Simulated scan of single mutants.
Amino acid sequence: MPMAGPVRDEQYTAYVAARLPWLQRVAYLLCQDWDRADDLVQVALTRLYVRWNRASSVENLDGYTRTVLVRVFLAEQRTGWWRRVSVREPPEPDPDSDSADHDGDLDLRAALRELAPRQRAAVVLRFYCDLSVEQTAAVLNCSTGTVKSQTSRGLTALRQALLPTMSIGEETA
């Protein structure tokens, strides 16, 4: 039986208030832009609200919400709209970061930004959200083999981008 309006809205509002920073962080890792991350979260939360009666009864609401967010990101990537309105600026520092290595964080974010969208999504889901291959496949709506290959390619690209370049004549240890 569907929830009544005020109770439904209170539950939704409480959930969003508790999970908003987490959703914004995941969205930022996906798109590498805080303003765009806010837009992604807004679209995802609107879709979640529309489906709240069903969503609130699922076993893993965070997983359901994360899936909606990732699918909103990937759908936006396919439209090309983001390429026309995106401003390429250096990544901004994470306001919630407690890392002392800000240069390393910026390097990682820049390297992450260069990954293809599905590779970036696979890496973020596997290593930031700590999902298994099977869980990541469910979120991305693809096979486990695709998750493994996208993750592998993404990690290879990240390693190449983050390894210090060696000058000619320098020996490897």
Rank of each mutant, 00 (worst) to 15 (best):
M1C: 14
P2G: 07
M3I: 06
A4K: 13
V7F: 00
R8H: 10
D9T: 12
E10I: 06
E10R: 14
Q11P: 02
V16A: 04
A17D: 08
A17T: 04
R25F: 03
Y28F: 06
L29M: 01
L29S: 01
L29N: 01
D33R: 00
W34L: 04
W34C: 02
D35V: 12
Q42G: 10
Q42I: 02
A44Y: 04
A44K: 05
L45S: 01
Y49I: 00
R51I: 04
R51G: 09
R54W: 03
S56M: 01
V58I: 00
V58P: 00
E59I: 08
N60S: 14
L61N: 06
Y64Q: 10
T67S: 15
V68R: 01
L69N: 03
L74D: 03
A75N: 15
E76R: 14
E76N: 13
Q77R: 14
Q77A: 15
R78T: 12
W81N: 11
W81Q: 11
W82R: 15
R83V: 12
R84H: 11
R88H: 09
R88I: 08
E89P: 01
P90E: 14
P91G: 13
P95E: 11
D96R: 11
H102M: 10
G104F: 07
D107V: 06
L108E: 07
A110R: 10
A111R: 12
P117M: 09
Q119H: 11
R120I: 10
R120H: 05
R120N: 09
L125E: 02
C129S: 09
L131S: 08
V133W: 07
Q135R: 15
A138P: 07
A138M: 12
L140I: 11
L140T: 05
L140A: 02
N141I: 06
S143P: 03
S143W: 02
T146H: 06
V147K: 01
T151G: 02
S152H: 15
G154N: 04
G154L: 08
T156I: 14
R159M: 12
L163T: 13
G169Q: 09
E170N: 12
E170Q: 15
T172Y: 07
